[in-house]
C-alpha cells in the first residue's frame, strides 16, 4: 500500500495478510486462464466482474490502477467476499513494476 501510494477502499483487517504473487490484466478471461495461485490482482477494470474473478481465483487483494474509482456496489461486493481493495494513481505497468521490484512475482505459468 505504501509502495503504491495507494488508498484503502476496503479491508483494514486484511492488510496483515502476507502475499508473494500478483498478476495484472484488464481481461478477466486471461486472468482465469493463465494465473495460478496469485494473491493480488492489478486491474483497470472497475466493474463487479473484477471482484468475482478474484473470488473464483481465491485472490485476497485487488489493486485498481490509474486512479480508477469503483462504484460503491463494487466495493460492497468485495467486502461480502472478503477481498481487500486498494486504489493507486499509478498506471498498470508502473504499479506492476513497483511491486515486482519489492519482491512480488508472477507465480503463474501457461
Amino acid at each position: 500500500m505504501e509502495y503504491l501510494d495507494a488508498d484503502l477502499l476496503y479491508g483494514e483487517e486484511l492488510l496483515d495478510h502476507e502475499v508473494h504473487t500478483a498478476c495484472g490484466s484488464d481481461m478477466m478471461s486471461d486472468v482465469l486462464a493463465f494465473v495460478k495461485d496469485q494473491a493480488v490482482l492489478l486491474t483497470g477494470l472497475i466493474n463487479p466482474q473484477s471482484i468475482r474473478t478474484a473470488e473464483m481465483m481465491d485472490m485476497t487483494c485487488i489493486v485498481f490502477v490509474r486512479g480508477k474509482e469503483p462504484a460503491p456496489a463494487v466495493v460492497e461486493l468485495a467486502e461480502e467476499k472478503g477481498i481487500c481493495v486498494l486504489r493507486t494513481q499509478h498506471p498498470m505497468f508502473a504499479a506492476c513494476g513497483i511491486l515486482y521490484s519489492h519482491g512480488l512475482r508472477g507465480g503463474g505459468h501457461i
Binding site: D26, M27, M28, S29, D30, L32, A33, T43, L45, N47, Q49, S50, T53
Partner: peptide, 14 residues
C-alpha cells in the same frame, strides 16, 4: 463486452 473485461475468446477454452 471487451470493455467489460471479457470477449477475448477464452471462455469456452477455459
Amino acid at each position: 463486452v471487451r470493455n467489460l473485461g471479457f470477449g477475448a475468446g477464452m471462455g469456452l477454452p477455459n
